[in-house]
Design a protein around this nucleic acid. Structure first.
Length: 647
RNA sequence: GCCGAUGUAGCUCAGUUGGCCAGAGCUACUGAUUUGUAAUCAGUGGGUCGGGGGUUCGAAUCCCUCCAUCGGCUCCA
């Protein structure tokens, strides 16, 4: 007998060689029907794999993340089986589960496939799923595995086998399909009840653009048909939040062919949002001891040779303009310009820290395939600042920057993000990273310490640092699930030296400052793109491009409405009058669709009582107030939203 | 940059296998209406069918090429 310990610490005894499935069955038939896989001693196993020694056991169902991914992994095999049936001779790359489903990279030889073929493949998958074929695991020797895939002439699997050790190789077979796979898999194909292929794309073999491009087919499956419908509805809802769609509907920004790809035009509503963001940033930075500077959009080649950017990043910069034999580049970052300002200031230790802030406009020549609405553009304005400080001041400055991040997140109610702490890889010193082994370790320790002391949850990612130092990025996800760096906070102990930046210490000796590059609000483009999706276009009052729409019930009250608007403008409230010859129902509908936070309805009653009827976007009639009362209400709400920042 | 798809009026979209002056709704404009909490009625205007080239008696529709967008890959200081 063996002892099985369950997650609730309960222990039961079973005969040696009992499977997780049998254990589930001993608990309840219902559970057994839902078990997709099992976690045995922390490792995910097939539910049908015999357990031979005392173990901890967690049964995995659709409700567990690992249960889902096991199901999707098995679904990839099912799709492969269908593809092999429909397109004989197809070769397979890799077919893993992902966050929302699975994909398989395939080489179709001479065949091509498009989304028109999805139905056919889905039908085949459903047909094969209904057979309820078992996923059978077998261990094979490397020699036999190579023989098998040589026979199939599948060079991709053979390539994968190269990296595997003899004795660790397993095959999984379901129906007529056998794949090289470490597993685990669900018990049988019958668990897959609903199948949907989502899209098709090219993907380089092993992610290397020098390799052949395979066809990647994405799909998703569910144990119930209704779950697929729910998922598809959810995807549709997410698409409605897409900033590209809302940005157009609410007239926030646009792109124009003649202006060029990745170069957004901010419409008046977008301009209004930017205005508010900058106001927030500038007052916050002023309170935190930053100085505002301004620098040109271009600079000579020599500056980027000094900074070290040119040899590494020239491909990402717009090509130079040549004037009187000199090369000028559009700036892709503000730091070199700021370093030059620091140098001009020629400070002593008594002047540090020096914090230089600028909403600098940068141009980056992103690859055409990378552009994505406002989230990835070629012209961007950064909430940039560079803090120059001594090593002793670093921790405090870095902590203050992090606190500023958290204050902003509170104001915007941003809670779904991950702080990613990127460090260096010692083997790449002198190549990817400046060769300062001690400074790397020292600053990484300082950063880590600040994160821990400030109680900020983070994930540490080795080998993702900037070339000049470690960094912290704030990762967020777009409506359609793409990951982005929203904000960044970087340590730079290398470039100041390249620029010869110094300060006199108390012993009258020259030292090089550490520089912190920080952009808590990222860029206007990405940040507003993110906010549009975050709020689904329903901006908080302080940020809404138009805060109030004054709706006159008939043209008789247009003059009164215009007088009210002027009073609101005097109170620093952004509004408009809808004086069209339309019914009040229509005016309300339009204001609701434009997501304007407040509507003031003005008719005979309001005119006589010298009041306004207030309607709130999304919630309806709020009641009747004087214009002064209303203005006060709006201002209080704005103060409440922003006061978090003051404290 | 690579693979695949898409590109019709300001916006959202129809336009069967190439065949009468290219359609609808919303928007805009004009007129009627003077309205009470999510669409008043009627009329009018508006399109080099992404650009260029080709095939054809005839192209929005087929072919080539360029541009842009979308989904991925690669990249992301």
């Amino acid at each position: 007998m063996i002892k099985i310990t369950f997650p609730d610490k309960n222990v039961r005894e079973y005969p040696k060689g009992t499977t997780s499935f049998e254990i589930a069955k001993s608990i309840s038939e219902g559970l057994a029907r839902n078990v997709l896989a099992a976690k045995v001693n922390g490792e995910t196993w097939d539910a049908s794999r015999p357990i031979d020694s005392d173990s901890t056991l967690q049964l995995l169902t659709w409700d567990d993340k690992e249960g889902k991914s096991t199901m999707w992994h098995s679904s990839a095999h099912l799709m492969a089986e269908a593809l092999e049936a429909l397109y004989p001779g197809v070769k397979f790359g890799i077919g893993p589960p992902v966050d929302n489903g699975f994909y398989y990279d395939v080489d179709l030889g001479g065949n091509t496939i498009s989304s028109d073929d999805f139905k056919k493949i889905e039908d085949k998958m459903v047909e094969l799923a209904r057979k309820g074929s078992k996923y059978e695991r077998t261990s094979v020797s490397k020699k036999d595995a190579i023989a098998f895939f040589t026979e199939k002439a599948d060079e991709y699997k053979l390539d994968l086998l190269n990296d595997l050790e003899d004795g660790t190789i397993t095959f999984y077979k379901q129906g007529n399909f056998t794949d090289l796979c470490r597993g685990p898999h669900i018990p049988e194909t019958g668990f897959i009840k609903a199948v949907k292929l989502m899209n098709i794309a090219g993907a380089y073999w092993r992610g290397d653009e020098k390799n052949k491009q395979l066809t990647r087919i994405y799909g998703i499956t569910f144990p119930k048909k209704s779950q697929l419908d729910e998922y598809l509805t959810m995807v549709e809802e997410a698409k409605k939040r897409d900033h590209r769609r809302i940005g157009k509907e609410l007239e926030i920004f646009t792109f124009d062919d003649d202006v060029g790809p990745g170069l957004p035009l901010w419409l008046p509503n977008g301009g209004a949002i930017i205005e508010q963001l900058e106001k927030l940033a500038k007052s916050t930075e002023q309170a935190a001891g930053y100085s505002r500077v301004r620098t040109p959009h271009i600079a000579r080649e020599s500056m980027y040779l000094t900074s070290g950017h040119l040899p590494y990043y020239e491909d990402s910069m717009y090509p130079p303009m040549i004037l009187e034999g000199e090369k000028y580049y559009l700036k892709a970052m503000n730091c070199p310009h700021h370093h030059k300002i620091y140098k001009e200031l020629n400070p002593s230790y008594k002047d540090l820290p020096i914090r230089l802030a600028e909403y600098g406009t940068c141009y980056r020549y992103e690859q055409s395939g990378e552009l994505f609405g406002l989230m990835r553009v070629r012209c961007l304005q950064m909430n940039d600042a560079h803090i120059y400080c001594t090593k002793e001041q670093f921790a405090e400055e870095f902590r203050a920057v992090n606190e500023m991040y958290l204050k902003y997140f509170k104001i915007f109610n941003i809670d779904k993000y991950v702080m990613r702490f990127s460090t260096h890889e010692p083997k790449k010193l002198g190549k990817k990273y400046v060769d300062e082994p001690e400074l790397w370790l020292e600053t990484e320790d300082m950063v880590r310490k600040v994160l821990i002391e400030s109680n900020i949850p983070y994930v540490e990612v080795p080998d993702e640092g900037a070339f000049y130092g470690p960094k912290i990025d704030v990762q967020v996800w777009s409506a359609i699930g793409r990951e982005f760096t929203l904000a960044t906070n970087q340590v730079d102990f290398a470039v100041p030296r390249r620029f010869g930046l110094t300060y006199k210490n108390s012993q009258n000796k020259l030292e090089t400052p550490i520089c912190i590059h920080r952009a808590p609000l990222g860029t206007h483009e990405r940040f507003i793109g993110f906010l549009i999706e975050h709020y689904a276009g329903n901006f908080p009052i302080w940020l809404a491009p138009k805060q109030v729409s004054i709706l006159s019930i008939s043209e008789k009250y247009n003059d009164y409405a215009k007088k009210l608007l002027q009073l609101l403008i005097n109170s620093d409230i952004r509004g408009l009058v809808d004086s069209r010859d339309e019914t009040i129902g229509k005016k309300i509908r339009d204001a609701e669709m434009k997501k304007i936070p407040f509507m003031l309805i003005i008719g005979e009653k309001e005119f006589n009582e010298n009041k306004v009827s207030v309607r709130r976007h999304g919630s309806g009639d709020v009641g009747s107030f004087t214009i002064e009362e209303f203005a006060k209400m709006v201002q209080e709400e704005i103060n409440n939203s922003l006061n978090i920042n003051k404290q």
